[in-house]
Design a protein around this nucleic acid. Structure first.
Length: 270
DNA sequence: AGCCAGGACAAGT
DNA sequence: ACTTGTCATGGC
């Protein structure tokens, strides 16, 4: 008998949208409609149906891993309603209700967003998939862990050639070396103010402001981190020439996720 | 076929 | 301090 745990879904929660809105790159939907992905060394299958969430694990594992990963205990209803003070955010949130910010593992987040630079999402997913298949461990048939920094810091650019990551290969290696050696200290980034993380992460070659902000938001849970990619820059130029509205203060990163997805996908921009 | 992609870097003003 | 060309690769 396979393990299963069910729980009532929060009122504001869209699993599929959250796992496929450009913050994580490895989740796939299977033939039963369950979202499947690897966290650490475990394959998780999550399904949202009729206001309920089901997981292929026990309650203890849900509490120790997925509760935090899915940002389960944050009150998104109250938070997003506070965004309604701004008309554009109200439109974005209303159209794509239920997007949440994931709390992913820092190294995977950093590495993934290094790969993301000047790249498109389908191709980012392909490179990351090849990275895991080439250097991760096969934890179940066809499913691989994300290779840790220690595993990658011994690699050369030629070793990474099968990924077809282009000029980013050397950046991945520099990140692996600085993280594995502790020159970039994840524990200290985690426990420090966001300004420390901003300075620390850009010591890595290939990590600029945008990649650093993504890592701080999705990997270190810094809600105020504000990644400005080409889409968010468009939004800022078009709708917020004087900066983000006051109602997002302290949660700019979360507001950013709605704006990013809205600007890319809404029919109202086509 | 050509433009663009969840950018960063180096060289040039 | 700001602007511009360049970097691999391939999706659309």
């Amino acid at each position: 008998m396979k393990k299963e745990f069910k729980i009532k879904a929060p009122e504001v929660f869209n699993l599929e949208l959250t796992l496929d809105c450009g913050q994580a790159f490895r989740w796939e939907k299977d033939e039963n409609g369950a979202m499947c992905g690897v966290i650490g060394n475990t394959l998780y299958k999550i399904k949202q149906e009729n206001g309920e969430l089901s997981f292929n694990c026990g309650k203890e594992e849900f509490d120790s891993v997925l509760r935090d990963y899915l940002d389960f205990d944050r009150d998104y209803k109250t938070l997003t309603e506070s965004f309604f003070a701004d008309e554009h955010l109200k439109a974005a949130v209303s159209e794509f209700n239920g997007i949440r910010i994931l709390h992913q593992q820092p190294w995977e987040t950093l590495c993934s967003f290094i790969i993301s630079q000047n790249n498109n999402i389908p191709r980012i997913k392909g490179i990351i998939k090849r990275l895991c298949e080439s250097f991760g461990d096969e934890i179940e048939e066809g499913w691989y862990s994300f290779p840790d920094a220690e595993r990658l810091c011994g690699c050369t650019v030629e070793d990474l050639a099968p990924l077809r990551s282009g000029f980013r290969a050397k950046y991945i290696i520099d990140a692996a070396e600085k993280v594995a050696s502790g020159e970039v200290n994840f524990e200290k980034i985690k426990s420090s103010d966001i300004s420390f993380g901003r300075e620390e992460l850009i010591k890595i070659k290939g990590v600029g402001k945008k990649v650093a902000e993504c890592t701080l938001l999705y990997g270190f849970g810094k809600d105020e981190a504000f990644p400005e990619d080409v889409w968010v820059k468009r939004i800022m130029a078009e709708l917020y020439p004087d900066g983000m509205p006051e109602c997002t203060k302290g949660y700019e990163g979360i507001a950013q996720q709605y704006l990013f997805h809205w600007r890319r996908n809404s029919e109202s921009f086509k």
